[in-house]
Design a protein around this nucleic acid. Sequence first.
DNA 1: GGTTATGCTATTTTT
DNA 2: TAGCATAACC
Length: 717
Amino acid sequence: MDLLADLNEPQRQAVTCPGGPLQVLAGAGSGKTRVLTYRVAWLIASAGVSPQEILAITFTNKAANEMKERIESLVGPVARTMWVSTFHAACARILRKEAPHLGYMNNFTIYDTADQVRLVRRCLKELDLDIKRFTPKGIHAVISSAKNQLIGPQEFTGMVDGFYDDTAARVYELYQKMLFTNNAMDFDDLIMLTVTLFKAFPERLGHYQHSFRHILVDEYQDTNHSQYRLVNLLGRQHRNVCVVGDDDQSIYSWRGADIRNILDFEKDYPDAMVVKLEQNYRSTQTILSAANSLVCNNSDRKSKKLWTDAGEGEPVRVVAVSDEHAEARFVAGEVNRLRGEGIPPGSVAVFYRINAQSRVLEDIFVRYGIAYRVVGGTKFYERAEIKDAIAYLLLIDNPADSVSFMRVINSPKRGLGQAAVTALAGYAGSEGITHLEAAARADRIAAIRPAARKSLKAFQALITDLAAATASSPVAATIEAMLAGSGYLDMLKAERTIEAEGRIENLQELVGVAAEYDQRAVGGSLRGFLQEISLYTDVDKLAVEQEAVTLMTMHNAKGLEFPAVFIIGAEEGIFPHSRSLEEQNLEEERRLCYVAMTRARRRLYFTHATTRNLYGGRSYNMASRFIEEIPARLTRVEAEPGTRTVSGGHYGKPVTPVPDAGSAAGTFFHAGDNVVHAAFGEGVVTRVEPGGGVTVRFSRDGSERTLMVEYAPLKKV
DNA sequence: GGTTATGCTATTTTT
DNA sequence: TAGCATAACC
Ligand SMILES: Nc1ncnc2c1ncn2[C@@H]1O[C@H](COP(=O)(O)OP(=O)(O)OP(=O)(O)O)[C@@H](O)[C@H]1O
């Protein structure tokens, strides 16, 4: 069987394990994901397991799609009926069928984090609590972590004490009630309610236990308790549970992930077969040794061997720069240099600790003309206009959804004030009807003025009409009709600003996404579309655009690999982040560093800046302790000219100056260059000034301005 | 009731 | 710094 030809011996052993509990605990790049993928393929192709009997769990939707594709390429289209998804998506799929058992409707809405926090805020207000003291975010975090522990509202109330937690418990109860009346669930509910369902309806559990003959979980080190329980319940009958992971790569404890899940697997399944993988197929020996030395500073870990036959490779480069601009310029210059070494920009990734760090990088990349794409950050689906549009669609699909109703009832402005909306909500509550139904009966609500009544009724009619039309029209058409009919598009057009144009473009992109869905999904529906995008994040659409540098947080980098990796902002306070230090999470930060480093195949860089602007203030940071945890023999330490380090010479090695990456104005702009400025438009360089300035004459108004190259949003054309 | 301004605040990581 | 929420104002 040629499936097995792509595997080494221990991998083959894991892949062909006939059944029973199986654990693969192994270091980075040792082929764990490959094992999982091939095991699924093998089960289908050689063990007579039907694809429908397989449940494979991945960490992101993107990883799920990749795995599906890979399996399909190994065993053919039969693979399409497998369940390969995230925990959340799998549970959502189960609950779409089973929700009525729990009193929810099948078309429940899934609230994203912002919706959840908004709902908590509403609960706090309803209970007349001090929002300053009990911040919606804080309370939400408490509720979320309770749910991750499978602690429902009543149970939570019963077990906590102390004023804060008691208050949180009251909010939790109301919050859960509100979700229920809105026919909505939050992310954590997806898992918790699935477990609840299985506990309350054993025959439903039996059904799924029976149908999932094999359960496989990737990135098992980042599962939380509720997910653990779920796997445990589902796997009870066949006991064909295969988990794959690396305790050193557990980086989501703040989201409830519990490293004990993987460490205790053998306790839960004493008969488990345990396979170790020790050959790394990704990185050079230098990178591996560096990462390993680093992570050895953690206690409480299962030590793992890891070797490679890829050779020594280049030293890890550690570069000191003066500030974040110099840092970005260094990276940009290096990206250009790497091209010459056969590493195109598409093979380069830049990782940072916090999203805010991407800004400067983007600025400089634009100026250098380097293509890049940012993964994560302000996400497409979190933009206000997209959320508004989706809220309309959700309301069309689920008239009971009061959060969506509230979101869009006055955007665009419909002449409804606080008073009218409150009266409407009150009426809906007392009559036990939805907000939308209440809008239809606006005439009966005394507190609402005639003009407002009229627009409420019009709104209700709009939504109802759109809902009636959805069955017979493609999703894209529904969205277009909604944008036009609601006046949303007109509102943006009337604004006549750059931002509004951008928003219109975003909405067009949404229509595009829907059109793509219409084409692809046979028997597609508005509901299907909404369900698909409700669990969708930007990481999932990380398209393999060639030639663009990838910018993302280290968390997003999990599971990926790149020939060259830059880890920027390697400074105390940033990485490790000061907040993590406060919370005693140094070891998790170190694991994050380990994950980031082991994404690199051949080249690895750390940069740290003496000073940087962050949150509006200037800070001076020492180089990250993580840098010092890498043995000096594996690194090459350098400093850009003019860089002074904070603590001075704490490296074990003399510092070699690095040639300037080309920041001087002269190297970038020449008299006669055509340029474009973000605010002033197109122009031409008339003079290059000493000291990093250029004089540009702008064609728009004929003005001449002298600009500092370092700061001006100026680009060659 | 709507608009605008100012005033605040919170800024880690995300399915 | 910027993004949001509330307050003052029209
Ligand atoms: N037997 C093998 N022969 C050749 N290449 C392999 C083999 N096994 C894995 N690889 C390659 O090694 C790389 C890492 O594999 P994979 O992503 O499965 O590892 P992993 O253990 O899941 O990594 P991580 O935990 O770091 O995300 C991939 O490029 C994969 O194609």
